[in-house]
Design a protein around this nucleic acid. Structure first.
Length: 271
DNA sequence: CCGCCGCCCTGCTTGC
DNA sequence: TGCAAGCAGGGCGGCG
């Protein structure tokens, strides 16, 4: 599941390959996957656009176009953005939107589960107004984090997954950061004291940075813009490690459910 | 504003 | 071995 480090890796890979290219043709296999403002037709509006910049906001890949419009992609769980050098090749499996570019390459938006969306946004449109702080930005200070948690009864893990507070953390990195900070996932956010918050803050930043360095985590599905798997799955301490020994204290990692999501943690050293 | 729930989908796992 | 049922999960809209 692409979270911040995976989306960052995808965006960097796309930037190397398709910045400066122009969209020559758009093919849409599944119309619901390609959303445009009401007065525009997605495919028509995209043809002729040059891709100027590529970045990331939370878990969204953002491509800035020559007209000032943006092409914003949410990959959800199984979405992929893959560049094929040669569009004579068969499209990547489950491709629902394909952009043919003027150098003969093709950008495939593929998604076996069809949960992802590619959305065209207008110049200056505040499409990300509901998204919270970028955890790798200077805005995300320990003090800001303390302020966010203040008075909140929500379990800390559920809080970390709430994109309106901090943007980009998903299930994998929420579990890993809480393990690193030695905090139980079900503790009410407001119950964390300053020492715990001061452990959790650098744990969040650190795990995201290390995962980016290793080009993300491939548990089953994720690949980057070139179709390559990540490397951070080998570094996971708890996520998906049900029954295996905790790397810190040796006790078996357990799986519980919190807000309908699998949650892996160690009863021995997360308090 | 806040929190909770159901829905969207299909590949994979589980159980008989 | 084969098949069906159940599960997983991010974001969003609806509801209280």
């Amino acid at each position: 599941m692409p979270e911040l480090p995976e989306v960052e890796t995808i965006a960097r890979g796309l930037a190397r390959r398709i910045i400066g290219r122009t969209v020559e043709r758009v093919r849409i296999g599944l119309p619901k996957m390609a959303v445009a403002p009401e007065d525009l037709v997605f495919a028509k509006a995209l043809v002729g656009e040059r891709i100027e910049r590529i970045g990331r906001r939370g878990k969204y890949v953002v491509m800035e176009l020559q007209s000032g419009r943006g092409l914003v992609t949410s990959l959800r769980m199984t979405g992929r953005l893959i560049v094929q050098r040669d569009r004579a090749l068969a499209p990547h499996p489950y491709t629902h939107v394909a952009l043919d570019l003027n150098d003969g390459s093709r950008l495939c938006f593929a998604d076996s589960r069809q949960f992802g969306r590619m959305r065209l946004v207008g110049p200056g449109e505040r499409w990300d107004a509901a998204l919270g702080t970028e955890p790798l930005s200077l805005d995300f200070t320990p003090e800001a984090f303390i302020g966010m948690l203040c008075g909140r009864p929500t379990p800390i893990k559920v809080f970390l997954l709430d994109q309106r507070r901090i943007a980009g953390i998903g299930n994998i990195y929420a579990c890993e950061a809480l393990w690193e900070a030695r905090i139980r996932p079900d503790r009410p956010a407001k119950s964390l004291g300053k020492p715990a918050i001061r452990r959790l803050h650098p744990a969040i930043v650190g795990v995201l940075q290390r995962a980016i360095r290793l080009r993300g985590t491939t548990v089953d599905d994720y690949v980057d813009a070139e179709g390559l798997r990540g490397g951070f799955q080998n570094k996971l301490a708890v996520y998906g490690r049900n029954g295996k020994p905790c790397k810190r204290c040796g006790r078996k990692v357990v799986r519980t459910v919190l807000a309908q999501r699998g949650t892996w943690w160690c009863r021995g050293c997360q308090k």
